Simulated scan of single mutants.
Amino acid sequence: MYQNVLFPTDGSDGADAALAHAVDIARQYDATLHVLFVAKDDFGPSGMVEKEHDGVRRSEMVGGEELARERKEASKTGMTSRPHDEHGAVSEHGRHVVEDAAAGIDDVAVETAVVPGTPYRAILDYADEHGVDLIVMGTHGRTGLDRYLLGSVTEKVIRTADQPVLTVRMRDQ
Rank of each mutant, 00 (worst) to 15 (best):
K40H: 06
Y29I: 03
E50I: 11
R57Y: 15
P164Q: 11
I25E: 09
V115M: 09
I135H: 02
T154P: 03
E70Y: 00
H130A: 08
Y148G: 08
A20Y: 02
G44Q: 15
D106R: 09
A109S: 15
V49R: 05
L36H: 03
A109K: 15
D100T: 02
G94N: 02
V62L: 06
H53C: 00
P83Y: 05
L145E: 07
A22L: 00
D133N: 13
R171C: 00
E155L: 12
A122S: 09
T154D: 04
A20D: 04
R82K: 11
V23Q: 04
R147H: 12
T154W: 04
R121M: 00
H87Y: 09
H93C: 05
G88Y: 01
V62G: 04
R27T: 15
H140M: 06
H84E: 08
A102L: 08
E66C: 12
M1K: 13
L36I: 07
G144E: 06
E66L: 10
G78W: 04
H87S: 07
M1N: 15
D10M: 01
T160H: 14
A122R: 07
A127Y: 01
E99D: 15
S12F: 00
A102T: 11
G131I: 08
N4L: 02
G138T: 01
E60C: 04
V153L: 11
G141A: 10
R69G: 06
A109M: 07
P119C: 12
V136I: 03
K72R: 11
V23W: 12
E92P: 03
V132A: 04
R95K: 11
A18H: 06
T118S: 09
I105W: 01
D146P: 02
R58K: 14
D100S: 03
V108G: 04
V98M: 10
R71M: 07
P116L: 05
L6F: 08
T32D: 05
P83N: 03
E70F: 10
Y120Q: 14
R58Q: 13
A17V: 03
D13M: 00
M48V: 09
Y2C: 10
Y120A: 10
L67A: 07
G14N: 13
V23S: 13
T139R: 12
A26D: 05
S75G: 03
R69H: 13
R27L: 15
R147G: 13
A103N: 13
L150G: 10
T9H: 09
D42A: 11
R27Y: 07
D146T: 11
G117P: 05
K40R: 06
D106T: 09
L149S: 11
V49H: 06
P119L: 07
D107V: 06
K51A: 07
V168F: 06
R142I: 01
V168K: 08
R171K: 14
G14Y: 14
K51H: 10
H96Q: 15
T160L: 14
D128C: 02
D85N: 11
G144Q: 11
M48K: 06
L19S: 08
N4S: 04
S152D: 08
A15Y: 01
L67Y: 08
G117L: 02
G94H: 05
P45K: 12
E92Q: 09
I135L: 08
T154A: 06
T118Q: 13
A31T: 07
V38K: 07
F7W: 06
Q28P: 03
R57N: 03
L145R: 14
Y148L: 10
D172L: 01
I158L: 15
M170I: 01
A102Q: 09
